[in-house]
Design a binder for these strands. Structure first.
Length: 144
DNA sequence: AGTGAGCGC
């Protein structure tokens, strides 16, 4: 009777197919590291040509909304463009229109990328120079 | 020098 072993074998494999405690792939309960920043009137534009200046950047984005501020980041010492810049619209919806209208488009022969700019640490929290408040800087840990 | 990813003073 060799069939005996064939019948008993599948019984041991049952635990592999048991429906107990199946962990479904978590979609995304929390957003620990969003690839893009949340909507804001501020835009980060990359992929700019070295020839593109603040004026050209503002002029290109002004077609989709009221640009209150535009700047092409240039190196302090060399003075040349770093190839990216920032555009600030009056409202967030205008910024969205600016992204839809300029992202992936050409500017001075280069494909540019427009997205929401990341929030920047405001001036008021200078690097720890050794001076503690009220002279500026951060107090050591454990101190209130 | 502008080689080309990125986040500004």
């Amino acid at each position: 009777m060799a069939m005996r072993a064939a019948v008993l074998a599948p019984r041991g494999l049952r635990r592999l197919f048991s429906t107990s405690t199946f962990i479904p792939p978590p979609v995304n309960q929390s957003t620990p590291s969003p690839p893009q920043a949340e909507p804001s009137p501020n835009l980060f534009v990359s992929g700019l040509s070295k020839r593109t200046t603040t004026e050209g950047l503002r002029d290109a984005f002004a077609k989709f909304g009221e640009v209150v501020h535009a700047r092409v980041v240039t190196d302090r010492v060399s003075g040349y463009s770093k190839g990216y810049g920032f555009v600030r619209y009056a409202t967030t919806e205008e910024a969205a229109a600016g992204i839809q209208g300029m992202d992936g488009k050409f500017l001075d022969g280069w494909v540019i990328f427009a997205e929401y700019a990341r929030p920047r640490p405001p001036p008021g929290t200078p690097p720890n120079t050794g001076n503690y408040p009220p002279y500026g800087g951060s107090p050591p840990y454990g101190q209130q």
